[in-house]
């Protein structure tokens, strides 16, 4: 039997799949870019939900891994590596390795300390990226050649890129859901709800948390790789801590640890930003207080609107 979460997820993905056909009919092809941007944010948000929603580890430095993935890809491209699968391997190795080191240190702490430390590490990565003078430094780097898929340029623009990002989002969504439903995911939630009990039951919770942290960083790195492919440009600003804040907003707005929440939250943010900024240049004056109001009065996030009764998996 299909549960409600899978149903809503199915609807979301069916809609996304139909968009390249639907948008030209209503003459709104320009929205394709917006959708790609939203999907990229959603990929990173899903990965962050794995550690915040399921793991209870509030990281405020997650965007740094998007930046690391993006720069690993950009530097790979600059040195003449064009195959996207090779670039993917490089991205995973670099973000994963970095997450292993920072995660080991950060997980010596928990709660608010963890938050401050991930923030500090994120900032350290950000400043390292700005100091890469050979790759544009502060100003960023425009890429003149993009990655190819087995030598074909199908994943460089238009529908090819759209479906490539779509596939990445779908696999992320499916993968993180499977992880969260596995024994690994249950241990992670047990450690979130009661670390002592999980520890006493014999689970090495630090190791579980570290693995979740590394997985999340790798997925964020992939989102960075795709961001380079989409924007044909990379700059340190994608790793700024405000971007990490946006990711947290997406995750919390969508509903923590829920199946579709991170996707809903990410799309909500991208669409709202587009909408607000089109009617009001200083849209942040509305966005900021809106966040405060949402925190104070709307608990549970967007996902709860779709699941009024039960909260799944948490």
């Amino acid at each position: 039997m299909m549960d409600r979460g899978a149903l809503i997820g199915g609807v979301i993905f069916a809609l996304l799949l139909a968009m390249p056909v639907l948008l030209p009919i209503v003459g709104a092809e320009y929205l394709t870019g917006l959708l790609i941007k939203a999907m990229l944010l959603a990929i990173a948000a899903i990965s962050l939900d794995l550690i915040i929603g399921h793991g209870g580890m509030v990281s405020l430095g997650h965007a740094a891994f998007i930046g690391v993935g993006a720069y690993a890809t950009a530097i790979g491209l600059e040195s003449g590596i064009e195959e996207i699968l090779v670039l993917l391997a490089i991205t995973l190795a670099v973000t994963g390795g970095l997450a292993l080191v920072t995660g080991t240190l950060a997980l010596r702490t928990s709660g608010v300390y963890f938050l401050m430390i991930t923030l500090a590490f994120g900032q350290m990565i950000y400043f390292t990226l700005t100091s890469l003078a050979a790759y544009g430094g502060d100003d960023g780097l425009t890429l003149w050649s993009l990655a190819t898929f087995f030598g074909s340029d199908i994943v460089q623009e238009g529908e090819g890129l759209y479906f490539f990002v779509f596939a990445a989002l779908f696999l992320t969504w499916l993968g993180v859901w499977r992880i969260s439903q596995s024994r690994f995911g249950r241990v992670l939630r047990a450690a979130r709800d009661n670390p002592q009990r999980a520890e006493v039951m014999g689970y090495p919770i630090a190791r579980y948390q570290l693995i979740a942290y590394v997985i999340a960083a790798c997925i964020a790195g992939v989102s960075g790789l795709l961001l380079v492919q989409y924007a044909e440009f990379v700059s340190p600003s994608i790793a700024a801590w405000q971007r990490s804040g946006d990711l947290i907003v997406a995750v919390v707005l969508g509903g923590l640890g829920s199946r579709n929440g991170a996707i809903l939250g990410a799309f909500f943010i991208v669409i709202m930003e587009e909408f607000l900024s089109s009617i009001f240049h200083e849209w942040r004056l509305i966005y900021g207080p809106l966040l405060v109001v949402l925190v104070l009065y709307a608990k549970g996030g967007l996902n709860d609107l779709l699941h009024p009764k039960s909260r799944e998996a948490s």
Binding site: V58, L60, I248, V249, R284, L285, P289, L290, L291, V295
Partner: peptide, 13 residues
Amino acid sequence: LDQVLATFGIIIF
């Protein structure tokens, strides 16, 4: 988490 989000909103504002 709520504290982070709300104060983040105030920073943006």
